[in-house]
Write a protein that binds this DNA or RNA. Structure first.
Lengths: 227, 227
DNA sequence: GACGAATTGGACAAGCCTGTCTAAATTTGT
DNA sequence: ACAAATTTAGACAGGCTTGTCCAATTCGTC
């Protein structure tokens, strides 16, 4: 309607650019100040546009907030699935590969701008907009865990791991590799590259101690039969 | 000054009762609405006192907020250490005892009112009041992990566990037994008793698979020697 | 260069919130 | 029962914020 959409050129250059700029600034301010504390004037200033432009593009504060959440959800999910695609299916060195994967997951999905912002908005406003975040819950963690569980199941099937329930293993993997970063996340901080690596290394070591392929599966099955 | 403090009687009965009532209501409202969105009138109404009484007791909104955080921090820490005191030092059934401990930890420290409220306030306002929450960080998680690590070290020393770094093991224990509750916590929900139990059971099983003392150390070492 | 759309800055009303003040009512201890 | 302290309801000023309106300006396009 508004955009003529000529064939091979960006029709609304600065228009769309400003829209994005507003959403980005809004994400930052909503996270820093909370929904109630966020100030439209501040968002406009941070986006480098006038207050009126914010209203032109997004209607009102609540619609702007929803646009922010949808935007972050979409980008985060894209990042997560792109990262899961790099899961080591045929590991040369399983421990090293899993650590590298965990570090990628942290850097690209959890510690980056979108991840931190979305997490904070969910925590702060999740109860106020249940339907808005229900969507995130299904599209995000739900699918993430399934996809990751499938990868672990494949590793188990190939004999690299010894896993009971792949869904449980996937959740525990994520919990383990982030175990030492919880406090930093809680306070909104960004862990250093070294902290991420150490947490991932320790987590993967424990994960493999629990699920790593046992060299003597017969003995293990015998022990289980005993019980 | 204000309180005469006669020897053996509670000088300000309903006075102090109202103060507590205000702090409790304030905790609830601050959590639900965020600091900026919290409304003193609403807090007063929820506490069953007049707005003026809130100001009489706590001065202004920011002081009230600090009182809330200190209150929650204190009670949470007390609960945590009371629960850690119930750690199974001489376990009859290590797995069952650790599961029961994890469930207690969840019920008494993490899922209860104070725990949920404090977590949410830390997440939402931690960056705005660094010094306020730095205190929590040192007194809470710092000491919790040390205390828990000491308990695990003792179990290891007694031959019940095989642990490298007790601090890492303590953090990973907490991460594992809460692995399946993360999403619920994020959205401010309260997991059911059954969910808590399942997460704890799965977490402890994996924890013991990684750190449990092997029943047949000779066979295991033989297998390792094989490789 | 000219046209139309988007943007800007500012003024503006309406509403809400904090924090103070007051006089009346209530509670507390003696 | 009395006196002091506390609590209450309500009014109130001051400040801030949202969302609208409008005239002037800038920008992109033809």
């Amino acid at each position: 309607m508004k955009v003529g959409v000529s064939p091979d050129t960006f029709p609304p250059r600065s228009h769309e650019a400003k829209r994005i700029s507003v959403v980005d600034a809004a994400a930052s301010v909503f996270c820093r100040e909370g929904y109630a504390g966020a100030n439209i004037d501040l968002i406009a200033a941070e986006a480098g546009v006038s207050r009126q432009t914010v209203y032109n593009h997004h209607g009102d504060k609540e619609k702007l907030f929803m646009a922010v959440v949808r935007d972050l959800t979409e980008r985060c999910n894209a990042g997560i699935f792109a990262t899961i695609a790099t899961f080591p299916d045929q590991p040369a060195d399983l421990e090293a590969d899993l650590v590298a994967f965990a570090v990628r997951m942290n850097r690209n999905c959890i510690c980056n701008r979108d991840g931190r912002f979305l997490r904070k908005l969910i925590q702060a406003e999740g109860e106020r907009y249940p339907e808005l975040f229900a969507e995130w819950r299904e599209q995000g963690p739900g699918r993430t865990w399934s996809a990751l569980a499938a990868r672990f199941a494949r590793l188990a099937y190939a004999g690299h791991l010894s896993i009971g329930d792949p869904d449980v293993a996937a959740r525990q993997f994520l919990a383990l590799v982030n175990a030492e970063l919880q406090i930093t996340f809680m306070l909104g901080g960004i862990p250093t590259e070294e902290e991420v690596l150490r947490s991932a290394s320790n987590g993967v070591r424990t994960f493999l101690a629990a699920f790593g392929r046992k060299k003597a599966p017969a003995a293990r099955q015998a022990a289980l039969a005993h019980a």
